[in-house]
Design a binder for these strands. Structure first.
Lengths: 228, 228
DNA sequence: TGCCGTTGTCACACTATTGTAACATTGCTG
DNA sequence: CAGCAATGTTACAATAGTGTGACAACGGCA
C-alpha cells in the first residue's frame, strides 16, 4: 500500500484530497503545517508528499529544502500544490526540488494522474540504486546481495522480502502488510507463511551476523533495522 | 567536465534546465534553434544533447537525423524533450535515434537522472569498441568472439545475445526484456525460446569455462557477470 | 534440387522453491 | 509458576521454474 502524506492547512481541500486518495486506493496521513509534517515524516517516511505551497509558519518551500537536506528523505517524491500560475513560481518550485506541481483549482483525476506519474518515475530512478546497511548491500539491478566480498544465495521470495525491508528500514510491518507488499495483493496464503520466510531469510543472513537486522516485534510484526 | 548542449527555443524552460544542469555540476551551452545547434556542435561536439522536439524552423526530428548522419556526431547521446505523450511519437523519437526522451512537464531531478543514465550507457557501450571480460573478447565490428587464441563459432542470434550481455554486464534481464532488446520489439516468440538460446550460448562458451558468465537468476531472468 | 546451418517450439527431466502443518520454544499475564 | 498466545523451527509434498534434447520448418547456397 502506497502511503501519501498530505500537508495542507485548509480543511476543505484536505478533505477533498483525502477522498480522492482513498478512492484511488492510497493510504494517507494528514498534516496541517510544516512542523506536523516533519514529525510525521520522522516517525516513518511516506512514499510521496503532497505539499501546499502556502502554509502558516514554515512555508512549503522551506519544508522542501529541509526534506531534501536530510539523508533519508532526500529522494522522497514531492508534489507541490500551488495557487500561483506564474512561470517564475513554477520554475522556482521545481528548482527547489519538487518533482511536480499541481495548480489550484485541480481535479481529483489530475491529481491522481500526477501522483501515479511521479511514483512511476521515482520508482524507476530510486528503485535502481543499491541499498547498503553496515556492509550488507543489495543491488536491485543485478539482483544480488553482497556481504563484504561474498554473494548470498537467496531464493526469489527471500530476495523480495529483504529488498522490501531494506527499502523501508526502521518500520514495523504486520504479516498482512508484508503479504500485501512482498507477495502482492490478491495472493491468499497463511499469515504464518511470513514467519517461515523470515526464518529462511535470517538463516541466509546469519553466519555473518546480519540476521540481527531482521527483528521481531512481538504482537505486531517484523522490522528491518541496524539498531534495536 | 561533462558538456551538454541545450536546444530549446523557450527562454523560461531553457533557464530552468540551465539552472538544474549547473546545480548538477554540468557545463552547458544553449541554442535557440537547430541551425545554432549545428553550428555549436560543429565548433566542438558536446557530450550530450538535450533537444526540444518542437523547434522553430528545422524540427528536432530533422536535427536528430542530421546529427546521426554525420560520422563524428553519429554516436552522440541525445535526449528529446517533448510535450507529446502519444506512444507513436515516443516510439518515433526513439526510432529516429534519440537515446531517451523526457515529456514536459518534467522535474529537474528527473532530467538529471536521465542524463546520468544515458551518459552511463553511452560510456559503457561506446559503440564499436571490442568488449573484453577475463579473456573473452567480442569484436562488434569483426563480428567475432575470441577466447585466448581461438575463435568461437556463434550463430547470429547467439552472437547478438552475447553482445547484448557483454554490453550490459551485472544486470539481470527478464526473458521479455531480452526478447525486446535482442530479438527486437514486435517479434512474437515464446519466452522459453530465450532459455534455448541461453543453453546454446552456454554450450558454445563452455569448454573454456566461460559459460559461468551466463548466470541464471531464478524467477527473474539471466545475467552476464564475471563474478557471482 | 538437395544439403546444411539456424531457429522456434515442444516434451520431458530435474531441481529449487514454496506453502502448510506439526511440533518446539519463548515470553507475557495474572 | 501455570497457562496461554505468539513466534521459532523443522519436515514434507506440491509446484513452478529451468535445463535439455529432439524435431520440423525455414532459408541460403552450391
Amino acid at each position: 500500500m502506497t502511503r501519501i502524506l498530505v500537508v495542507e492547512d485548509e480543511p476543505a481541500i484536505r478533505d477533498m484530497i483525502g477522498f480522492a486518495l482513498k478512492q484511488a486506493g492510497f493510504q494517507y496521513d494528514e498534516s496541517e503545517d510544516a512542523e506536523q509534517a516533519l514529525a510525521a515524516v520522522a516517525s516513518g517516511p511516506p512514499d510521496l508528499v503532497l505539499l501546499d505551497w502556502m502554509l502558516p509558519g514554515m512555508s512549503g518551500a522551506d519544508l522542501v529544502r529541509r526534506l531534501r537536506g536530510e539523508e533519508i528523505t532526500a529522494g522522497l517524491p514531492i508534489i507541490m500544490l500551488t495557487a500561483r500560475v506564474g512561470e517564475n513560481d513554477r520554475v522556482h518550485g521545481l528548482e527547489l526540488g519538487a518533482d511536480d506541481y499541481v495548480t489550484k483549482p485541480f481535479s481529483p483525476r489530475e491529481l491522481i494522474a500526477r501522483i501515479n506519474a511521479v511514483l512511476r518515475r521515482s520508482v524507476a530512478v530510486a528503485g535502481e540504486q543499491p541499498i547498503e546497511f553496515d556492509g550488507l548491500c543489495l543491488d536491485p539491478v543485478g539482483h544480488r546481495v553482497r556481504t563484504d566480498g561474498e554473494t548470498l544465495a537467496l531464493a526469489p521470495t527471500e530476495f523480495r522480502l529483504l529488498h522490501f525491508f531494506m527499502s523501508h528500514p526502521d518500520r514495523v510491518y504486520s504479516r498482512e502488510q508484508l503479504l500485501d507488499r512482498v507477495w502482492g495483493r490478491g495472493v491468499f496464503v497463511e499469515e504464518r507463511t511470513v514467519d517461515v520466510h523470515i526464518r529462511r531469510l535470517r538463516k541466509a543472513l546469519a553466519g555473518r551476523g546480519y540476521d540481527r537486522f531482521i527483528q521481531t516485534v512481538r504482537g505486531t510484526g517484523y522490522r528491518f533495522s541496524t539498531g534495536n
